[in-house]
Lab assay of single mutants.
Amino acid sequence: MDVFMKGLSKAKEGVVAAAEKTKQGVAEAAGKTKEGVLYVGSKTKEGVVHGVATVAEKTKEQVTNVGGAVVTGVTAVAQKTVEGAGSIAAATGFVKKDQLGKNEEGAPQEGILEDMPVDPDNEAYEMPSEEGYQDYEPEA
């Protein structure tokens, strides 16, 4: 019985440690998101679009440190934060509304985080759909 109880105690310690790591990862992701939003706020009209992409990228980098179902929630929060940063930029006159959601080359930025393969159960990952990809044929 002692062996059984000791095993359960060790398992509990492992769960607590994993929860603490997840909590730490979420806190880091939130900190990076805040950094990115402050970065966007300090940019001029020309830099705002690039700044919004930076927020998304920093958040995406930190999301990889967070495991399990938390990833889905962090990704949703990050996307809403990026959308909010863009709205703030438009409201303050840093950028025109028609410039939001495009990178410096004018290509749409939507789907940055949505296409990231995420499995809350950590069982399997699927690649994003290939609808947006084109076949590449090298020139002879």
Score class of each variant (00 low, 15 high):
residue 7 G to L: 06
residue 19 A to E: 00
residue 74 V to A: 10
residue 69 A to L: 01
residue 29 A to I: 13
residue 96 K to I: 15
residue 18 A to W: 07
residue 97 K to T: 14
residue 67 G to D: 03
residue 48 V to P: 09
residue 110 E to T: 10
residue 85 A to H: 02
residue 110 E to C: 09
residue 55 V to D: 01
residue 105 E to G: 05
residue 111 G to V: 03
residue 124 A to S: 13
residue 109 Q to R: 02
residue 29 A to P: 00
residue 96 K to H: 06
residue 13 E to R: 02
residue 62 Q to C: 10
residue 70 V to C: 15
residue 15 V to F: 04
residue 74 V to N: 04
residue 2 D to G: 01
residue 115 D to A: 10
residue 68 G to R: 15
residue 138 P to L: 14
residue 42 S to T: 10
residue 3 V to T: 01
residue 106 G to F: 03
residue 124 A to P: 11
residue 129 S to D: 04
residue 67 G to E: 02
residue 48 V to A: 05
residue 67 G to I: 10
residue 8 L to Q: 00
residue 31 G to Q: 03
residue 6 K to A: 06
residue 30 A to P: 02
residue 120 P to A: 05
residue 9 S to I: 13
residue 36 G to V: 12
residue 76 A to K: 10
residue 27 A to E: 01
residue 32 K to L: 15
residue 126 E to W: 09
residue 2 D to F: 12
residue 57 E to V: 09
residue 109 Q to A: 11
residue 48 V to N: 01
residue 20 E to I: 15
residue 78 A to W: 12
residue 94 F to N: 08
residue 27 A to Y: 14
residue 101 G to E: 00
residue 88 I to M: 08
residue 88 I to Y: 11
residue 63 V to K: 00
residue 17 A to N: 09
residue 126 E to A: 06
residue 134 Q to I: 14
residue 92 T to S: 13
residue 110 E to P: 03
residue 79 Q to A: 06
residue 105 E to H: 13
residue 109 Q to W: 15
residue 103 N to E: 06
residue 126 E to L: 07
residue 103 N to F: 08
residue 11 A to G: 04
residue 74 V to G: 04
residue 2 D to K: 02
residue 81 T to L: 04
residue 15 V to E: 00
residue 61 E to I: 08
residue 63 V to H: 00
residue 3 V to I: 04
residue 8 L to V: 03
residue 117 P to Q: 11
residue 25 G to H: 15
residue 6 K to S: 04
residue 105 E to M: 00
residue 43 K to R: 06
residue 89 A to T: 11
residue 74 V to P: 04
residue 24 Q to W: 13
residue 91 A to W: 13
residue 61 E to L: 02
residue 63 V to T: 06
residue 47 G to I: 09
residue 60 K to E: 02
residue 116 M to E: 02
residue 31 G to A: 09
residue 2 D to H: 15
residue 20 E to H: 14
residue 64 T to I: 06
residue 64 T to M: 10
residue 114 E to D: 09
residue 71 V to K: 10
residue 48 V to L: 10
residue 124 A to I: 04
residue 76 A to R: 05
residue 131 E to R: 02
residue 107 A to Q: 11
residue 41 G to H: 02
residue 130 E to A: 11
residue 43 K to C: 11
residue 46 E to A: 08
residue 84 G to S: 13
residue 78 A to Q: 02
residue 74 V to Y: 03
residue 100 L to N: 10
residue 119 D to K: 12
residue 23 K to M: 15
residue 4 F to Q: 00
residue 63 V to I: 09
residue 44 T to F: 15
residue 25 G to L: 13
residue 1 M to H: 00
residue 97 K to L: 00
residue 132 G to Q: 12
residue 66 V to L: 08
residue 100 L to D: 14
residue 90 A to F: 09
residue 59 T to A: 12
residue 138 P to I: 02
residue 19 A to N: 01
residue 24 Q to E: 05
residue 52 V to Q: 01
residue 107 A to R: 13
residue 27 A to T: 09
residue 122 N to C: 11
residue 78 A to S: 08
residue 131 E to M: 01
residue 2 D to Q: 12
residue 128 P to K: 06
residue 69 A to P: 04
residue 84 G to V: 05
residue 49 V to K: 10
residue 75 T to V: 13
residue 81 T to E: 03
residue 69 A to R: 15
residue 103 N to S: 11
residue 91 A to D: 08
residue 96 K to T: 04
residue 54 T to Y: 11
residue 44 T to C: 05
residue 43 K to I: 12
residue 87 S to P: 00
residue 57 E to R: 04
residue 11 A to D: 00
residue 114 E to W: 10
residue 77 V to H: 05
residue 127 M to P: 03
residue 126 E to Y: 14
residue 48 V to S: 02
residue 22 T to G: 10
residue 92 T to C: 04
residue 103 N to V: 13
residue 105 E to P: 11
residue 2 D to V: 02
residue 31 G to T: 11
residue 72 T to M: 14
residue 36 G to H: 15
residue 72 T to C: 04
residue 134 Q to M: 05
residue 117 P to M: 09
residue 89 A to S: 07
residue 16 V to S: 05
residue 25 G to Y: 14
residue 70 V to I: 15
residue 32 K to G: 01
residue 83 E to P: 10
residue 32 K to W: 15
residue 12 K to W: 14
residue 137 E to D: 07
residue 27 A to M: 13
residue 115 D to V: 13
residue 134 Q to S: 12
residue 129 S to Y: 08
residue 23 K to N: 04
residue 55 V to M: 13
residue 91 A to Y: 11
residue 4 F to L: 05
residue 108 P to Q: 10
residue 28 E to H: 00
residue 8 L to A: 02
residue 102 K to Q: 09
residue 8 L to K: 00
residue 50 H to Q: 02
residue 9 S to Q: 07
residue 140 A to W: 12
residue 87 S to R: 07
residue 24 Q to H: 11
residue 86 G to N: 09
residue 60 K to N: 06
residue 36 G to W: 12
residue 1 M to I: 00
residue 47 G to F: 10
residue 38 L to A: 10
residue 53 A to H: 01
residue 20 E to S: 06
residue 20 E to R: 02
residue 126 E to Q: 14
residue 64 T to W: 07
residue 119 D to V: 13
residue 61 E to F: 06
residue 60 K to R: 12
residue 17 A to E: 10
residue 38 L to M: 15
residue 45 K to D: 00
residue 12 K to R: 02
residue 43 K to V: 14
residue 68 G to I: 15
residue 15 V to P: 00
residue 98 D to V: 09
residue 7 G to P: 02
residue 140 A to Y: 07
residue 58 K to P: 01
residue 113 L to A: 09
residue 109 Q to T: 07
residue 5 M to R: 03
residue 5 M to L: 02
residue 62 Q to Y: 02
residue 56 A to E: 01
residue 65 N to F: 12
residue 72 T to D: 13
residue 11 A to M: 15
residue 64 T to N: 06
residue 40 V to R: 02
residue 137 E to K: 03
residue 115 D to L: 09
residue 77 V to K: 05
residue 98 D to F: 02
residue 77 V to Q: 03
residue 134 Q to T: 10
residue 4 F to K: 00
residue 91 A to V: 04
residue 106 G to V: 12
residue 52 V to A: 12
residue 81 T to P: 01
residue 83 E to V: 01
residue 42 S to A: 14
residue 18 A to C: 06
residue 20 E to K: 05
residue 69 A to H: 12
residue 133 Y to R: 06
residue 121 D to V: 09
residue 78 A to H: 07
residue 38 L to Q: 03
residue 88 I to R: 02
residue 118 V to H: 12
residue 45 K to H: 06
residue 1 M to N: 00
residue 112 I to E: 09
residue 29 A to K: 04
residue 82 V to I: 11
residue 36 G to R: 13
residue 17 A to W: 14
residue 103 N to R: 14
residue 83 E to D: 05
residue 81 T to G: 05
residue 140 A to E: 12
residue 26 V to K: 00
residue 46 E to C: 04
residue 35 E to L: 15
residue 97 K to A: 11
residue 4 F to A: 01
residue 35 E to V: 05
residue 136 Y to V: 11
residue 38 L to I: 05
residue 129 S to F: 13
residue 56 A to C: 15
residue 88 I to Q: 06
residue 86 G to A: 15
residue 58 K to V: 14
residue 61 E to H: 07
residue 59 T to Y: 00
residue 101 G to S: 07
residue 104 E to F: 10
residue 70 V to D: 05
residue 112 I to R: 15
residue 29 A to M: 04
residue 22 T to M: 14
residue 106 G to C: 13
residue 135 D to N: 14
residue 77 V to G: 04
residue 49 V to M: 14
residue 1 M to W: 00
residue 37 V to T: 00
residue 85 A to E: 06
residue 116 M to S: 15
residue 108 P to E: 15
residue 108 P to W: 03
residue 104 E to S: 04
residue 133 Y to W: 06
residue 76 A to L: 12
residue 66 V to Y: 09
residue 39 Y to R: 00
residue 83 E to R: 11
residue 134 Q to A: 10
residue 102 K to V: 11
residue 85 A to Q: 05
residue 44 T to W: 15
residue 106 G to R: 01
residue 75 T to N: 09
residue 117 P to F: 06
residue 48 V to M: 09
residue 6 K to N: 08
residue 104 E to V: 02
residue 13 E to V: 09
residue 34 K to I: 10
residue 123 E to I: 13
residue 72 T to N: 06
residue 124 A to V: 12
residue 134 Q to G: 12
residue 131 E to A: 02
residue 85 A to N: 04
residue 7 G to M: 07
